[in-house]
Every structure is written in structure tokens, then in C-alpha cells.
């Protein structure tokens, strides 16, 4: 069964179409990445899927409930967390957990057990009385996730949950998401970190309210990267980049540490052209290797060539 089914979902604000006839399914227990630039329509879609906003056209079923006709049941079956709005900064850790417990109508005895679980996953035992605002980003994040799933929802929406969290804490946060998913919880997540999109089973990319690509990370890389990316190891990278970017065969050039990444039309011709160009300019080439594109490469390509606004 699908946890979420979206059909022709559309939202207009006056003349402006924020979400434009989108369709997708999210399978039970999967981690689903919902990606797009700022203003692409992600937040509007999530607010509709959470039953907070009705659609102008089309509909969606979340956990089997229709978002337009039964938003109350939708709200009860989901958890929602965002970086910005989830916790009360001036309440203590424990007061935040109690607050969410009451909102979700959890009984005293169940709440006691769930509170211990939240303190456990957030590693906050002994800090129950700390003011939430004084916790660092990573701890706050785990507490927010704990509060969002306090009532054991089967579907969780995470809106940029790791923004502003350092790499080590981010890794630990994703371990938690994986554990939820292993328990059969469906997770729909938006993120600005495209490295994190690699953790997802399936992804959709939206731009100007429309879906412009969908698939697993592997499928997206296979289907959408038209230009091979060559990593060039050479002396004097700044001067080498200046020379290469003047050439018509270099689709895109950027410095990467002590190397240069060049998107070329054709791998072999690109290798030959780079070698002879740099040789003519007295720059030593120490190696050229073809690299796997990142999801970021795929998305930049799609947004610049494939989709919507251009």
C-alpha cells in the first residue's frame, strides 16, 4: 500500500500557481526526498499534505485519508517537524515533550515511556530542566524529531530538518531516520543538502510548481547527466581554469580544491583537448579521470537545461 498518493494536486494563490498538477506516490516505509530550490512549491505541497491547507484542484490521500475531505484524520496520523517552528525555545526540554504529549492526547503512562525514549534518542538524560533555546543545533534537532514522532505516527514530514546542523550530528540524525524507516515509518524529507538526498529511496525534484524529475538517486544520475565530468589534476589550477573555460568544448568549468572539474561534450575528445591545451600553456597535467556525478550535478543540470524557469 502507498502511504501517500498525490493526484493532480494544484494550489493557486490568486494569479500565482504555486503547485501545478503534481502526481506522485510514496511507498509505505520508504524515505522519500522532496527537492527543489527555494520558492519551487515544496512548502506549499507539504502544508497541503499535512492537512493544513486545502488544494485548489486535485487531491491527495495521506495514510488513506483524503486531505480535503478529512484533514482532521490526516493531522492525527502524521508527524511534522521543521528546523524553524518545532520547539518552544523558552520552555525546558521536559516541558516541550509534555506540551507535545498533551497536543497529541497521549495518556500519562504512555507519555512517561515515550519521554524516556525521546531523552534517549536525543541523548538528553540529565538535561530535562535545560532551557531548549540553550541547546546546540544538533541536540535541538533530535529533540524536535522526538517530539514530532511522540504519538508514533506512521508518516513523518521533515522540512529541512538538518539545516544549520554540523556534519557529525547530521550523520547521527540520519541514523535515527533510518531506524524509523526500518520500523515501517514513511519519511518524506526536504533538504538543501543534496548529499543527503542520496540517503533516500526515491526522489522528486520540483521547479516552478511542477515535477521535473523523479526516480532513485541511481536512476537520476544515469538518465540525466549528458556531459561526462572530468577531474583534471595539474599545476597552476587557477591559470589552467582560465584557459579551459575559454574553450567551446568546455560546457562547465570549476575549481575543486587542487583540481579542476570540466564538463565536456565527449570524454575522449575532452581528455585530448585538455591535455594539449594545458601542454601548450606550459601547465603540467598529472592526470585526468572521469568522476561520478553527484546529485547536485544532476539537479543543477536539470534546473538549467530541463526545467521550468530555466
Amino acid at each position: 500500500m502507498n502511504a501517500i498518493e498525490v493526484r493532480g494536486l494544484t494550489k493557486r494563490f490568486g494569479q500565482f500557481t504555486a503547485v501545478d498538477h503534481i502526481d506522485f506516490d510514496v511507498k509505505q516505509g520508504e524515505i522519500f526526498g522532496f527537492l527543489g530550490a527555494n520558492g519551487a512549491g515544496k512548502s506549499t505541497t507539504i502544508r497541503m499534505l499535512c492537512g493544513l491547507l486545502s488544494s485548489t484542484e486535485g487531491t491527495a490521500r495521506v495514510g488513506g485519508f483524503d486531505i480535503n475531505t478529512d484533514p482532521h484524520s490526516v493531522k492525527q496520523s502524521i508527524g511534522y517537524m521543521s528546523q524553524k517552528f518545532s520547539l518552544y525555545e523558552d520552555l525546558t526540554v521536559e516541558e516541550n515533550i509534555d506540551f507535545f504529549g498533551r497536543v497529541y492526547g497521549i495518556t500519562e503512562s504512555a507519555l512517561k515511556e515515550r519521554k524516556a525514549w525521546v531523552l534517549d534518542i536525543a541523548n538528553l538524560h540529565g538535561r530535562e530542566k535545560s532551557i531548549t533555546g540553550t541547546l546546540s543545533g544538533g541536540w535541538k534537532q533530535r529533540l524536535a524529531l522526538g517530539c514530532a514522532v511522540l504519538h508514533r505516527p506512521r508518516i513523518v514530514f521533515l522540512d529541512e530538518p538538518t539545516s544549520g546542523v554540523d556534519p557529525v550530528m547530521r550523520r547521527k540524525f540520519w541514523e535515527l531516520i533510518n531506524e524509523l524507516s526500518a520500523d515501517g515509518v514513511t519519511v518524506l524529507v526536504t533538504t538543501h543538502f543534496l548529499e543527503e538526498a542520496e540517503y533516500c529511496n526515491d526522489i522528486i525534484l520540483i521547479n516552478a510548481g511542477k515535477i521535473i524529475a523523479s526516480g532513485s538517486p541511481k536512476e537520476l544520475k544515469r538518465d540525466h547527466i549528458k556531459h561526462p565530468i572530468l577531474e583534471v589534476h595539474c599545476s597552476d589550477v587557477v591559470r589552467a581554469m582560465e584557459r579551459i573555460e575559454e574553450e567551446p568544448w568546455a560546457v562547465e568549468t570549476s575549481i575543486f580544491g587542487t583540481t579542476i572539474h570540466v564538463n565536456v561534450e565527449n570524454e575522449q575528445q575532452g581528455r585530448d583537448a585538455i591535455t594539449s591545451l594545458l601542454h601548450r600553456n606550459g601547465i603540467t597535467v598529472n592526470g585526468i579521470e572521469r568522476i561520478t556525478p553527484s546529485l547536485e550535478d544532476v539537479f543543477i543540470y536539470l534546473l538549467e537545461h530541463g526545467g521550468g524557469k530555466g
Partner: peptide, 8 residues
């Protein structure tokens, strides 16, 4: 920080 991938 907080800037989308394309702008980044």
C-alpha cells in the same frame, strides 16, 4: 548556509 543548491 541556508542557500539553495542552485544559488550555492
Amino acid at each position: 548556509t541556508g542557500v539553495d543548491p542552485v544559488s550555492r
